[in-house]
Nucleic acid binder design. Structure first.
Lengths: 235, 235
DNA sequence: AAGAAAGCAAGAGCAGTGCTCTCATTCGTC
DNA sequence: GACGAATGAGAGCACTGCTCTTGCTTTCTT
């Protein structure tokens, strides 16, 4: 019985929360590669070996932080969507985009952990991370599916997707219960990757020489392009 | 006289090349964060301290590898462009995109070093990396500028860029000697970030659940969207 | 040609890391 | 109260980046 809520188990959960909290602080201040279990132990007032009672390894701690990050990003997106009318597909898409950007800029270290280069030798265990990790794209797909069913998507002149891709898209459509056509799904995948490309570019400062006085303005332009890419016309 | 080509200086240059070569091997096999100067020294048949005669620090070795990677990517893009007609703007843009993708998939570790999360505590020195680091985007801008001057860009219905963004774009236009309008520049920045977003998504395996039988097909679809985004019509 | 100067490699050493082991202590339960 | 599980402390291993000193070799200068 792991959820017996004995005094001890409650203390254990508190310690786990502390570990994640301190781990996030170190992640934010020093980055993922510099995340040290010993340093976390020091801040926790414990000796390093004691932390291994709670966390199996450094990679395990990373997994905790990954899940924590995905959840926080998902919450941010959901919160942003709460204030948008369900019929306002463009507004929903823009809200998702802005939420991702805002969260990425506010939490660059966690963003890097989730969407930057994978920590070498560390592979996020799928069973724990795929669920929270797909929250954003699921919200995006919901918007496109709604817009498609409402007849607000215009992708008539788009070429048919190739054979093999079509088969994969059919599987995706089946698994997610979608009615959107191949062209929209392909465009959706593009918009998804492109959105995170834009945010990553800004968070990691890849614009480099093009230091802009107001990156938010540029991002709004990017949102226009993203909305267009999936066949939605912006108001 | 540093380029006197004495026997000693030639031996030194050879050792430097060896260090970069072995470093790239370790980067490819173990990733950036696991790159160890001691391990490089072992493979080189030297003691760790001796390597510090050639490389100031681990970060310095990273910088060498960053420059090396940018150059290799730039060469790959230039080589891909060599076989495309100058007037074939869509073909040039697609060639750049495919070259970036192919190189990223072939060298995921170096790609991660260049475009993934920045190594914490390490900041690539601008004076050494900005030059090679901008080769790809410069090639892209060349294509768009050529297409614009050839009257092949249609972005008439695009909204005007905001005030502050316009000022930045004017500066870019001046510095690079471009005649393309604001809308095209903004769309170009989007396409640039989106392209690397798509490649990053695929290299890092972020498509996750959407494991596709033929990712190249999907990338061709993405190329369509990228070409459209800058107002070029694909043949 | 002889001596000075610079370059080079080795080794020891410091502080830090992840992780494992043993040992004592404390806590919850029967 | 007694037993077993959970917890924390400490020592220790192998590894890391990096610095310093110590010799040796090559190169340049007088």
């Amino acid at each position: 019985m792991e959820s017996a809520s004995t005094p001890r188990s409650r203390a254990r959960e508190q310690t786990m929360r502390d570990i994640v909290r301190i781990g996030r602080q170190h992640l934010a201040s020093d980055g993922a590669a510099a995340l040290s279990l010993r340093a976390v132990a020091r801040d926790l007032g414990l000796v390093s070996s004691a932390v291994y009672r709670y966390v199996a390894s450094r990679d395990d701690l990373l997994t905790l932080l990954v899940v924590d990050g995905y959840d926080e990003l998902g919450d941010a997106v959901d919160q942003a969507l709460a204030g948008v009318e369900r019929e306002d597909h463009v507004g929903r898409m823009a809200a998702i985009g802005r939420a991702v950007r805002a969260w990425g800029l506010a939490e660059p270290a966690t963003y890097a952990l989730l969407f930057g280069s994978p920590v070498p030798g560390y592979e996020a265990p799928a069973e724990q991370t795929t669920g929270p990790g797909t929250r954003v794209v699921v919200r995006l797909v919901e918007v496109w599916e709604d817009a498609w069913q409402a007849g607000r998507i215009g992708l008539d002149d788009s070429p048919l997707a190739p054979r093999r891709l079509t088969r994969d898209l059919a599987r995706i459509r089946r698994e997610m219960g979608l009615s959107a056509p191949d062209a929209l799904l392909a465009r959706g995948l593009f918009a998804w990757a492109a959105l995170f490309g834009c945010v990553t570019w800004e968070v990691f400062g890849q614009y480099g020489t093009a230091t802009l006085t107001d990156p938010a303005d540029l991002f709004e332009q990017h949102l226009d392009a993203l909305v267009e890419a999936v066949g939605l016309a912006r108001a």
